[in-house]
Write a protein that binds this DNA or RNA. Structure first.
Lengths: 403, 403
DNA sequence: AATATAAAGTTTACTAAGTAAACTAATTGA
DNA sequence: TCAATTAGTTTACTTAGTAAACTTTATATT
């Protein structure tokens, strides 16, 4: 099968409708004429497409765009009332959920702790109850749920909709998509946490639509989501970006994966925990498998604790050295370090930057935008973006008129 | 600007015409009905497109496809007489050229030595005379030249059509596209050698069109060309795949790039040269910067020289260790090791395979196809493919009727 | 040998989704 | 007040598909 098969007239309408929705997503309120200008379509065509989208209640007219000479344009927006979208992130010791409307405004946000050693059944039961609550809430606002995206830091089989393998939890082949789709009667998507984080930054970050982006998710685990020429790198089985388990230190620590000296063993949460202990820093060590101790360390950093900053600098240098490899490999325009540990590492951002540039051919990084530390919601936002994209790419024009 | 702008009716015809040409490229002689079945178009539509392509003389009818019940189909092929395509590869100590017709049959192949320390002017003068000869030859066969692709192991600025920086030669900003386009009056493309090699394998290799492929070009330098979901990874500036200069050995040799312990210093030609010397192997050491000595080593390997095989095994282990990082990063279905040194390394292919799998999560490589050693023409073939693709993607239907 | 069946390619009528250009509507500014 | 300007709609047209009937040319069967 070649890379692309045939195209027919339906494709052109569908693709143009997606382009229109994408404009509204990226730029907010726009008139038909604005959109026509941006896309190079005629006003007639855009009017036509918009009529369909309004019929489908995906787009709504809001206010007039006055202030200029000439007839004022009628501004259009994604219709918030079209429905609700849900993202769930299952982390090592907590589950987070985010509910937004179709206009991508947050309606609800919650986080519940889970037992980091718990079974997949126990964990998923909590997730289910959180989703139920979110769906109730959206229905109470008259919004039907458009889809649910679950993100998770492990290998994900998107087609089967299952968690294929979790390096930290040990979970294997945990089915989710089919079960939840039956239960909630909406489309369910499963994504790798780093991939979702990259999607979140790509969709909602400082440069929406940035075409060449490396997103590093650094917490208990370590993985990357990479956008290449505007497309998320997935690989043959969808497991691309497992950079945490690439060898890094010659005489490193034995990793959970069985190998020795993986990058994650030098910069992941376990590495921080180990190095802080070695440095004699006083912090709660009773629950190493959770994330609770990180708050304490964060506190110390904010107070300018030199010893902790020293440890972070050491880790930052290793973050940069590894990033350099990725930069040489991908030649991105932007690198974002996210995940729980990025909240700490942003205090040693210069170290990371220097280590990265130091190990990179100068030509590669001309210029390179490096951001350390994000909102912490990257994966959740990426989950929302995933639901949004799949709704957007399948507008079902005509089918859901008067819905 | 969003990832894709508008689509109009012209696009659909153009894209379908490309799909048709792609079928003919991949599968050779096909009838209109065959193509219609493969692409899911109607026979009427394919007939229509084919009429255009025959008008443009890109496609020709050859023989009848009898043997079945029913009216026999008229088999179609890419029309060799449509024109000639030229690929030039500028290597460290030689220039190679390949001339094919539009049916991708080789018409001429040549190789000339160059002074590996020579100036860019001197080198390009030789390249120009080789191209002139090839063009003369194609014109003597009544073929007009459709394009020239020049490949080169260094950073390439495709848009400007210049060699931006050559790590081995030290060349900087050597303009080529504009000069040659003026001189030869045809389109000229410039490509990085590893990218071209990947294109060559993707286009002409054992799995044409393989969607997730890592191609490693291993010679004096070391770089990768990577296909991700069917698309060649280029990166922001087009410099993606510079994996040779990623740090690899903790206490490694100082590299030509100024850093220490780059992967290329452990597995590139210089590494082989160094390790053979250390092992006391007797081979011509008078011209380390060229490739002449490799033939001698190849000879020894073919005779089963244990010491040389030992050195190669050592290098093979490092090749595999580095490949593992790339496999973890890209999750490919196929890895091909090409370039001059691959002719030697194929004798230690099991070592490379084991080292690769040993450092890779098992889930990633289920299965992984690894090929070490190629025809040696990967970049040239990729150059031909580049010219072909650009002609194919811009069929100029109607414009060149009766050409 | 005559006829049925099968498949390839063409023709015809139709349709969807663009475009261009004219038209109508609603503002600002001289 | 009225010209200029811009937004959105309407109309006539074009392109490139589809479906289905038709023609052509083969093989298979009686």
């Amino acid at each position: 099968m070649p890379s692309q098969q045939k195209f027919d007239r339906g494709d052109i309408r569908r693709l143009n409708a997606v382009s229109v929705l994408n404009q509204l997503r990226l730029k907010g309120a726009l008139s038909r004429a604005n959109i026509a200008f941006e896309l190079g379509l005629t006003r007639a065509t855009v009017s036509n497409i918009i009529a369909n989208l309004i019929d489908a209640s995906m787009v709504s007219e809001t206010e007039y765009d006055s202030g200029r000479a000439g007839r004022p344009g009628l501004l259009l927006n994604l219709n918030p009332a079209f429905g609700a979208m849900i993202a769930v992130d299952i982390d090592i010791d907590s589950i987070s959920i985010l509910l937004t409307d179709f206009g991508q405004e947050v309606l609800y946000r919650a986080q519940n702790p889970i037992d980091s050693e718990g079974s997949s059944e126990a964990t998923l039961a909590i997730a289910v109850s959180m989703v139920e609550k979110a769906i109730q809430l959206s229905e109470s606002k008259g919004l039907q749920c458009l889809g649910i995206c679950v993100t998770w830091a492990g290998l994900v089989d998107r087609e089967e909709g299952q968690l294929a393998f979790g390096p930290t939890t040990g979970w294997q082949r945990v089915a989710l998509k089919t079960t939840w789709e039956k239960r909630f009667e909406v489309s369910v998507y499963v994504e790798n946490e780093a991939h979702a984080g990259a999607i979140g930054v790509h969709h909602f970050g400082e440069r929406p639509g940035v075409r060449n982006l490396i997103y590093l998710s650094l917490g208990g685990g370590l993985a990357a989501g990479v956008f290449v020429d505007g497309v998320l790198l997935r690989g043959k089985l969808g497991f691309a970006g497992q950079v945490g388990h690439t060898s890094f230190a010659d005489n490193g620590v034995v990793c959970s994966c069985g190998k020795q000296g993986c990058w994650v063993t030098e910069i992941g949460a376990a590495a921080l925990f180990r190095k802080l202990s070695e440095a004699g820093v006083d912090f709660p060590t009773n629950n190493a498998s959770g994330n609770g101790w990180i708050d304490c360390v964060l506190n110390k950093v904010e107070l300018g604790d030199e010893v902790v900053l020293g440890v972070l600098s050491e880790i930052g240098a290793s973050v940069g050295a590894g990033l350099a490899r990725l930069v040489q490999t991908f030649n991105p325009s932007m690198v974002v370090v996210g995940g729980r540990l990025s909240e700490l590492l942003k205090y040693v951002e210069p170290v990371i930057r220097e280590a990265t540039l130091n190990d990179t051919l100068a030509y590669m990084t001309d210029p390179l935008e490096l951001i350390v530390g994000t909102s912490g919601d990257d994966a959740l936002r990426g989950g929302i973006a995933t639901v949004f994209d799949s709704v957007m790419k399948n507008p079902k024009i005509g089918e859901m008129a008067g819905n």
